[in-house]
Design a protein around this nucleic acid. Structure first.
Lengths: 162, 162
DNA sequence: TGCGCAATTGCAATATTATAACATTAATAG
DNA sequence: CTATTAATGTTATAATATTGCAATTGCGCA
């Protein structure tokens, strides 16, 4: 899978391009329609590695296109992107972030830095295993998981934050 | 620790009484003031094992007392109860649920049934360990965790739901 | 091509969740 | 018993999300 925890400095345009082309490919394969609005929203979500709220996206969308947009426009695009597994919703922030590995459907697990706000998507089989086991013991069958960890990322800690 | 996963049928009044007396004891020890409103809200949160929203609590509070209540009343009580570790917030539901083990502070880990809406609080050291390890590997220091798993509980599965 | 169906988008209103700011009242220490 | 802090009351509003219906677009197929 692609690197889930980007270094602090990197060529972010590459992330965006990769995400969009990956999305196009997947949607084409699935016969899902990645329309202009949906692709715009995906691109805006990918503007950086910080989760972004729906109304921030709405503003950004309004700025870059002439059409005036309303909340349903954005929420519908977000719903589509969530269904396709192209983004994740961070429940504790009411915000959305690009999925680092849209190839296979999964619930995201995130480390969220309280200083720089960056969300690092984990690919930790251990966590899933531990959760699956706990659920199994209780006869509970899992539909979806949400793991959100807040704290300080390495980069910010090195900067003296903590 | 007390049983975190109550059987489907149980003497729930016992849960409520236990929660309230535990809360009184802890607050007394800590010099925290468990006022009437706060205790009322705690009791209402414990009305059952389903997470409950702030505005539902507000209605319930209005019903049972003559004073008219407003959102800040409830949110402040909830904030207090959260600080004291007497309840947990379920981010993915914007709702609150009683803490099964208020003795020691911890982030709650929950299995939430989509059918009966019951939230089962886990006490799974494995999960914490796995998360701690993943964070450590990335130089990330943890403040708080949130683990919310949605699916079908044993009881509902036995009833044919799934 | 053009018709018809289904998916998408536009649009207005409103629901739901949460907080800000400031006034008032209650509890507690000295 | 008074000064101080904590808690609550009150009004308003911010932030997030959805509903319902109309208009439009995309697309398969006659």
């Amino acid at each position: 899978m692609p690197t889930a925890a980007p270094e602090h400095r990197h060529n972010h345009q590459h992330c965006i391009d990769e995400a969009v082309s990956h999305a196009r490919r997947l949607c084409a394969e699935r016969g899902a329609r990645l329309t202009t609005i949906r692709e715009q929203v995906l691109t805006l979500v990918w503007a950086n590695h910080q989760p972004v709220g729906a109304y921030r996206l709405l503003e950004a969308l309004a700025e870059q296109s002439e059409r005036r947009s309303t909340p349903p426009t954005v929420y519908r695009a977000l719903d589509f992107l969530l269904e396709q597994g192209l983004i994740h919703r961070i429940a504790s922030l009411n915000a959305f972030v690009g999925c680092a590995d849209p190839g296979h459907r999964h619930s995201g697990h995130f480390l969220i830095c309280k200083h720089c706000n960056t969300a690092i998507e984990l690919d930790a089989a251990n966590i899933d295993t531990a959760i699956n086991r706990a659920a199994e013991q209780r006869g509970f069958s899992i539909d979806s998981k949400c793991v959100e960890v807040v704290g300080s990322c390495q980069h910010c800690r090195e900067q003296g934050h903590d």
